[in-house]
């Protein structure tokens, strides 16, 4: 069958132009965001707010790999975060690692935990979600029951005099940029396409030659790496780690809400979602400190009801031609 067409040349030029716009937009937005965050400590803006803004952008974006790209709903996502936080804390406090040397081990711990959880990837839907939640509970129990001299028991671990808010802020920024770069790459890569195909129909993808087990595992490990790093950096930033906060289910809930608010399956969705919802949370907290959770809850319900695909997801559904420029 001959597949040569006269329209191939204009389409190639159109593709090249779309590619140029895409990367120009990514560079401009990435540059502006980086400069903004770099200037936060310099301009003495609210450091804690911006630190957590970056943390939530990273968490929501990494969650997007597990959920938006791979089709899983890991309700126990906090397990990676908690294990990452404790890894850094134990290495720094008990084994006297420099913090910056300890942080990569948090990421490795997340990946290791991801490998241990990998057999659950054969599950799907609500079954996977429940098992994931149970495994996070198990992680929390295991760490709680480890000897007090290792994990600090119910009091947790204090990192002593190692707190460096500004440096940890910049490290968080690096983690965020690394996560966003990875996810941007993933969205255009062959692995990303395979993941999305598996998400949409694993059996059909298998019959199209996609190694479903391997592809799911790669996606899962990417999704496990970044929350563990976030946990490590946050432990450094706050200088204290305990099981109550490190394995708090609210961490998963916020991650899910922020990612869904922006739009799962898009790169920009979780960024916009985290940005919007963290700002909204801050605003509500400032204006209505007593009922902030109630208002935030109502806002989330309304968002899901009226924009079930999230802010970016809805936009791209209404403007399909923008999908080439907005990942």
């Amino acid at each position: 069958m001959s597949l040569k067409t006269n329209a191939a040349a204009p389409r190639a030029s159109e593709r090249e132009s779309a590619r140029r716009i895409y990367f120009t937009l990514a560079a401009i937005i990435g540059g502006v965001v980086s400069v903004y965050f770099v200037l936060v400590p310099v301009l003495k803006l609210n450091l804690a707010f911006h630190f957590y803004l970056m943390l939530w952008i990273t968490m929501a974006s990494a969650f997007n790999v597990a959920s938006g790209f791979s089709g899983y709903m890991p309700f126990g996502y906090v397990a990676f975060y908690g294990v990452g936080a404790f890894t850094t804390a134990i290495l720094v406090q008990k084994l006297h690692f420099p913090v910056l040397a300890a942080l990569p081990f948090s990421g490795i711990a997340g990946v290791t935990l991801g490998l241990m959880f990998a057999p659950t990837l054969r599950l799907s839907g609500i079954y996977f979600a429940i098992v994931s939640l149970a495994l996070a509970g198990i992680c929390r129990l295991v760490i709680t029951n480890l000897p007090e001299e290792v994990t600090g028991g119910s009091f947790g671990l204090h990192l002593g005099s190692r707190a460096e808010p500004v440096l940890s802020f910049y490290v968080m920024m690096c983690v965020m940029l690394l996560a966003l770069g990875t996810i941007l790459w993933l969205s255009r890569s062959r692995l990303g396409k395979a993941l999305r195909a598996v998400r949409d129909d694993a059996e059909a993808a298998d019959m199209m030659g996609v190694n479903v087990v391997r592809v799911r595992l790669y996606g899962w490990l990417i999704a496990a790496f970044f929350p563990a790093l976030c946990g490590g950096v946050e432990a450094w930033y706050t200088n204290v780690v305990d099981t109550e906060t490190a394995f708090n289910t609210l961490t998963t809930a916020k991650t899910v809400i922020y990612a869904v608010a922006g739009g799962l399956g898009t790169v920009t969705g979780p960024i916009v979602g985290a940005f919007t919802m963290v700002w909204l949370d801050e605003l509500i907290w400032r204006e209505f400190p007593r009922i902030n959770m109630l208002i935030l809850g109502i806002a989330t319900v309304l968002l899901v009801l009226f924009l079930p695909r999230g802010l970016i997801g809805t936009l791209l559904r209404r403007r399909p031609q923008w999908r080439r420029y907005i990942p």
């Binding site: 062959r190 999305r196 059909a204 199209m208 030659g209």
Partner: peptide, 19 residues
Amino acid sequence: PRVFRKMSLIDNLLVPVLD
């Protein structure tokens, strides 16, 4: 039909040749 519903037509066609 079992198309990859939330992927573009181009991406649908690329899936069998990703390797």
